[in-house]
Amino acid sequence: MNQIDLKQLTAPPNSWHMLRTLAGVGIFCSLLIVATYQATLPVITTKKLEKLQEAVFNVLPGAASKANFRLTPDGRFEPFEGTPKGETLVYAGYDRQGKLVGIALEAYGQGFQDVLHIIYGYSPEKQAVVGIQVLESKETPGLGDKIEKDPAFLANFEALDVSLSGDGQIQNAITAVKKGEKQQPYEIECITGATISSKAITAILQKSTGEFIPMLMKNLATFEK
C-alpha cells in the first residue's frame, strides 16, 4: 500500500488519466442536473403560475378568473397565451358573471436595498388602485419589509385615487405623506421607521400608473369580455 502511494506521488501526472476522470465526472454530473431539471420543471412552472394567479386575485378583490394581455409596440393590448418571453403583460380579472373587475399590472423600482417587484390592481370603474402586493423585496426585515404586511400601510391601497383629467393624464400624482397626515385620496401614508421603503413604493406606483393607466383607459374595450 505504502509502495503504491509513493510511486503515485513521484510519478509525473498522467494527462490522459486526469482528462478521463474530469470528463467522466463532468458527464455524470450534467446528466444528473438535466434529469433533476426535467423532473422538477413542471412542478416549478405550475407553482409560479399559481403564485401569480393568487397575486392577481389578491390585488383585484372580487376577481374569479383572469386573462393575460400583451402590450403591443404601438401601445395597444392583445390577448396572450403561453409562456411570456420578455413581453410586458397585464392581467385582466373578471368576476363570476364575466364582468371586468380590474386590471393587474406588475411594476419594478429601486427600494432601500434592492429592486422592488410589486403587482397592483387597477379598477377602471373606481378609477383607483384597489390592491397591492409585493412580489419580491430585500427590504430590511422588521422595518422596511413592513410594506408587505403592515395593515395600516396596505389600507392606503384599498382605494388610491388615480383618476384621469380631461387631457387623458393622471389628475393628481400619487404622493407620500407622513403618518397621520393623509387628507387626499391620492396620498400614501408612510410607515414610521420605514420611510424610504414607503417612498419607494410611492415612486414605483407614481411612475407605473402615469405610464400605463392612460393607455389602459384608451383600450378599455379590449379587456371587456
Binding site: Q8, P13, N14, H17, M18, T21, L22, V25, G26, C29, S30, L32, I33, T36, Y37, T40, I44
Partner: peptide
C-alpha cells in the same frame, strides 16, 4: 481520481448536488 485534479473534481461534484438541491 488522480490527486492533481482532485479539488476540481470535488468542486464539480459538490456544485452538481447544490444545483440539484436548488431545483428541489
Amino acid at each position: 481520481i488522480p490527486k492533481q485534479v482532485r479539488i476540481a473534481t470535488y468542486i464539480l461534484i459538490i456544485a452538481t448536488f447544490v444545483t440539484v438541491v436548488e431545483y428541489l
